Simulated assay, not measured.
Amino acid sequence: MASIARSLRPVALRLAQSSKARVAASSASPIAIRAFSVSSAVQVKKFTKDHEWIELSPDNKTGTIGISQYAAHALGDVVYVELPSTPLEVAKGDTIGAVESVKSASDINSPITCTITSVNELLEETPSAINKGPEDDGAGGGWIAKVEVGENGVKDLEELMDAAQYKAFTEEA
Rank of each mutant, 00 (worst) to 15 (best):
M1D: 03
A2P: 00
A2C: 00
S3I: 06
I4K: 02
I4V: 12
I4Y: 04
I4P: 00
A5H: 02
A5T: 04
S7D: 10
L8C: 01
V11K: 02
V11H: 06
A12H: 02
A12M: 04
A12Q: 02
R14P: 00
L15I: 11
Q17P: 00
S19Q: 08
A21S: 12
A25E: 13
S26I: 01
S27V: 02
S27D: 08
S29E: 14
P30H: 03
I31S: 05
A32V: 11
A32F: 03
A35S: 09
S40K: 02
A41N: 09
A41Q: 12
V44G: 01
K46M: 11
K46D: 05
T48R: 04
K49C: 06
K49M: 06
H51D: 14
E52A: 03
E55W: 00
P58E: 09
N60V: 00
N60D: 09
G63W: 01
G63E: 02
I65Q: 02
I65M: 03
S68N: 07
S68L: 05
S68F: 06
S68W: 07
Q69T: 15
Q69P: 00
Y70W: 13
Y70Q: 15
A71P: 03
A74W: 01
A74E: 14
L75C: 03
G76I: 12
V78P: 10
L83H: 10
L83G: 11
P84H: 11
P84K: 04
P84R: 07
T86G: 10
L88K: 15
E89R: 09
D94F: 05
D94Y: 06
T95H: 08
I96S: 10
A98T: 10
A98V: 05
V99L: 11
E100D: 15
S101V: 13
S101Y: 14
K103M: 13
K103C: 13
K103Y: 13
S104Q: 15
A105N: 02
A105H: 02
D107Y: 11
I108P: 13
P111S: 10
P111T: 10
P111W: 08
P111K: 10
T113F: 04
L123C: 09
S128N: 09
A129D: 11
N131G: 09
K132H: 08
G133P: 06
G133N: 08
G133S: 13
P134C: 11
D137H: 09
A139R: 03
W143N: 11
I144G: 10
K146L: 12
E148H: 14
V149G: 15
G150R: 11
E151G: 04
N152Q: 15
G153T: 14
G153M: 12
V154M: 03
K155C: 04
D156W: 10
L157G: 08
E158Y: 01
A163Q: 14
Y166V: 14
Y166G: 12
K167M: 08
E172P: 00
E172W: 00
A173H: 13
A173E: 12
